[in-house]
């Protein structure tokens, strides 16, 4: 190959490459705004956990360890020393229906769905909520392992796991929660759908 044709060839290649990346760009982005997040940005910001444990990080713990962390991290200050006293949602017991107190305008005597660990239809969502929200006003205070242990402890209080069972992403995914059928998947939807059809 002569020098000139090599040159022509690589020019052609460059044009092709340019055209190709151009097409890829056009497909992915019209405005070129926004940036690919770094790993460090992604993880604290993206805390979404799926019902089957999608997104759960590595790590593990046990209910036994969770009992100690429950004391050390002062969960009991709001949820009660044994998790049954409140005032924040009680952890122990069967599916709780709560009743609006007398004198509550418009609602007295009516039931509404309460809280309780056994209400959660999917165990990974307990991990997820502790991770996002607890202890209240101090999100991010617990390590992943501590959250596995605490989740295990709350499940143990409800007789769902054993005291020394290893609680990790796989264990949480495989737990058959008593209220598993309490979660009704939302119906499909399409634009312009009428209310009667949504029902």
């Amino acid at each position: 190959m002569t020098g000139a044709s090599t040159m022509r060839f690589s020019l052609l290649a460059a044009v092709l490459v340019l055209a190709w990346t151009g097409a890829a760009e056009a497909q992915g982005s019209t405005y070129g705004l926004g940036r690919t997040p770094t790993d460090e940005e992604l993880h604290p910001w993206d805390e979404a956990i799926g019902p089957m444990g999608e997104g759960l990080p590595p790590g593990s713990g046990t209910a036994e360890q969770g009992a100690v962390i429950y004391q050390r991290r002062r969960c009991g200050e709001c949820h009660g020393p044994t998790g049954a006293e409140g005032p924040a949602p009680r952890f122990v017991g069967p599916l709780q229906m709560e009743t609006y107190p007398a004198g509550t305008a418009g609602h007295a005597g009516q039931n509404f769905p309460g809280r309780g660990i056994s209400n959660f239809p999917f165990a990974p969502l307990i991990w997820s909520f502790i991770n996002k929200a607890m202890p209240l006003n101090q999100r991010g205070y617990l390590t992943d392992d501590e959250i596995y242990s605490l989740t295990g402890y709350l499940l143990y209080l409800n007789g769902i796991v054993g005291e020394t069972d290893l609680i990790d992403a796989r264990a949480l995914r495989e737990i058959e929660m008593p209220n598993r059928d309490g979660y009704v998947p939302p119906p499909p939807w399409k634009p312009g759908m009428r209310k009667a059809e949504v029902k």
């Binding site: 019902p51 509404f112 769905p113 309490g182 209310k195 029902k199």
Partner: peptide, 28 residues
């Protein structure tokens, strides 16, 4: 698939007499 959130997995689906009440989207 939906990732049921805290309220969706409890209060919005466990309403008494669930059924059609379970998850409602548009308002009439």
């Amino acid at each position: 698939r939906p990732y049921p959130t805290y309220w969706e997995q409890s209060h919005f689906t466990n309403y008494p007499h669930r059924g059609p009440l379970s998850y409602y989207l548009e308002q009439g």
